[in-house]
């Protein structure tokens, strides 16, 4: 297994989201038996080395995502998980009933990975965007939902999920180059435990996925304006770390930031938790405002959705003044 020192963290972020996924699966195969299933995206999932070395543990079901999840469930047991991968849109909505029945109703030990989540597949147009799965999967009872933010966290999330026996959905944002969010000193990852990225006193940003890179840059910009920002990396959408979220509500505002529809994702999960508290700051939900942007480069799409660091910072400035 890789050490999460500075070099390891940088290396994984350089590998990109799917390269890191493949590395984690390859390394974990030495430690634990599991099956990997893909819907004609074995190579795209970075599974080539795993499939070459452990052909008896790899199944490619072809372009059939419903079959992928059901076969993964049949292959799995409490002791032996399955990991199933496809593009986010197809690993979720296409096989929604299989996720509901096998991961939800039967608690099958299956880890579904939605690759290209958010707007990572920027050039394809809406068919391959992954901007609504969080709403779907987190409404299915009993499923852990994780949205890792950089190479280190993708590696940790995949290995942690393979080591437990819980049904899990991993919302894998990010393309070939990932931001480096985590630092080696005091690096930790535990499903359900949010990580503090930076401390501050005026504004609390709660984010998830690789878009946290923009949040960090936005906080730097706000710092220059004299606004101190705390950033909480809510890598686990479900179960939500409400203890970390509600431990301190002395901020002037809470801002949730996500590469997902503002209806149903991280912002909604945070709002649900805050709704049960009496005295609390106002929450601003930044995300995709219930529309599907046209295809373009990734940065262009962030601009369309008002999710670049500059746009996040200026929105917060506007709201706070």
């Amino acid at each position: 297994m890789m050490e999460m020192d500075d070099r390891g963290i940088k290396f994984l972020s350089y590998m990109g989201a799917r390269g890191t996924l493949g590395q984690a699966v390859f390394d974990m195969a030495e430690e634990k038996k599991f099956y990997a299933v893909s819907a004609d995206l074995g190579v795209g999932s970075g599974f080539s080395r795993f499939a070459d070395k452990y052909p008896e543990r790899f199944v490619d079901v072809g372009i059939a995502e419903q079959n992928m999840v059901a076969v993964a469930a049949g292959l799995s047991s409490k002791e032996t998980p399955s990991i199933a991968t496809s593009w986010a849109a197809f690993a979720s909505h296409r096989c929604a009933d299989q996720i509901r029945c096998f991961l939800g109703l039967m608690s099958s030990n299956v880890k579904v990975v939605g690759m290209g989540s958010g707007l990572a597949n920027s050039w394809t147009g809406g068919s391959h965007f992954g901007i609504s799965e969080l709403a779907m999967v987190r409404s299915v009872p009993g499923i852990d939902v994780i949205a890792p933010c950089d190479g280190a966290e993708i590696y940790s999330a995949v290995t942690a999920a393979l080591l437990n026996d819980r049904p899990t959905y991993i919302w894998l944002t990010g393309g070939t180059r990932l931001p480096v969010i985590n630092r080696s000193e005091a690096y930790r990852f535990q499903i359900g435990k949010a990580n503090l990225i930076r401390d501050g006193k005026d504004v609390l940003i709660v984010g998830c996925g690789t878009l946290l890179g923009e949040c960090v840059k936005a906080a730097d910009l706000l710092d220059k304006e004299g606004i101190s920002v705390k950033i909480l990396n809510m890598h686990t959408i479900k179960p939500l770390d409400t203890a970390a979220l509600l431990s301190d509500l002395s901020y002037r505002m809470i801002v949730t930031v996500e590469e997902h529809n503002v209806r149903g994702g991280l912002g909604s999960a945070v709002a649900e938790a805050l709704s049960e508290v009496k005295d609390k700051p106002v929450q601003i939900r930044l995300g995709i405002e219930d529309f599907v942007p046209a295809a373009g480069d990734y940065h262009y799409l962030l601009e369309c959705c008002k999710l670049t660091a500059e746009q996040i910072a200026s929105r917060i400035l506007m709201e706070i003044s």
């Binding site: 419903q66 059901a70 076969v71 469930a73 049949g74 292959l75 799995s76 009933d97 299989q98 509901r100």
Partner: peptide
């Protein structure tokens, strides 16, 4: 939920 049993059974058979 019809149409789920055979894919699951196929998974059992592969295993």
């Amino acid at each position: 939920s019809l149409g789920l049993g055979l894919p699951f059974a196929a998974g059992l058979a592969i295993r």
